[in-house]
């Protein structure tokens, strides 16, 4: 290891004196990695349906959808967008932007759509 790296102490030591159990014992090398449950898997396992629904939990404190009409802005410029291109499904503000989106390559169109979670996802 290079001296400046050692001096900066940026590398976490593998052995910690203050620990009762070292990481390398807990997650030995070469063994199958622990698959940590993602939030998507944690929530069903919490069995919230078994508890009274007025009891607050991680799911029911979520904010409901907005009551206001959805604000539509131009995907490219951010201006107010009265139009939608039927081909790319992008929202656009004026003819200039329209010209531009028609010349956009498909992957850019998809990336713009992905920004507002509207991209076509192929599985």
């Amino acid at each position: 290891m290079e001296p400046e790296v050692v001096e900066a102490e940026m590398v976490l030591p593998t052995h910690m004196w203050f620990k009762k159990m070292q990481t390398y014992d807990k997650y030995p090398k070469g063994q199958a990695r622990v698959r940590w449950k993602q939030l998507k898997q944690i929530i069903p396992a919490e069995n919230y349906q078994n508890y009274p629904h007025e009891e607050p939990n991680y799911v029911n404190i979520e904010t409901p959808p907005s009551m206001h009409p959805c604000r539509r802005i131009c995907d490219i410029t951010g201006y107010e967008a009265p139009y939608v291109d039927p081909r790319t499904k992008l929202r656009y503000a004026n003819a200039e932007v329209f010209k531009m989106i028609r010349s956009l390559p498909n992957d850019y169109v998809q990336r713009y759509l992905a920004l507002r979670n509207a991209a076509v996802v192929l599985r």
């Binding site: 976490l12 910690m16 004196w17 203050f18 009762k20 990481t23 807990k26 940590w36 449950k37 939030l39």
Partner: peptide
């Protein structure tokens, strides 16, 4: 959710706080 990462982070934080006893 990823407690292996969490452990590294706690290690680093406690180490920098100066922890040096057996626990």
């Amino acid at each position: 959710y990823q407690f292996e990462i969490m452990e590294y982070i706690l290690d680093f934080g406690l180490d920098r706080l100066g922890a040096d006893q057996s626990q």
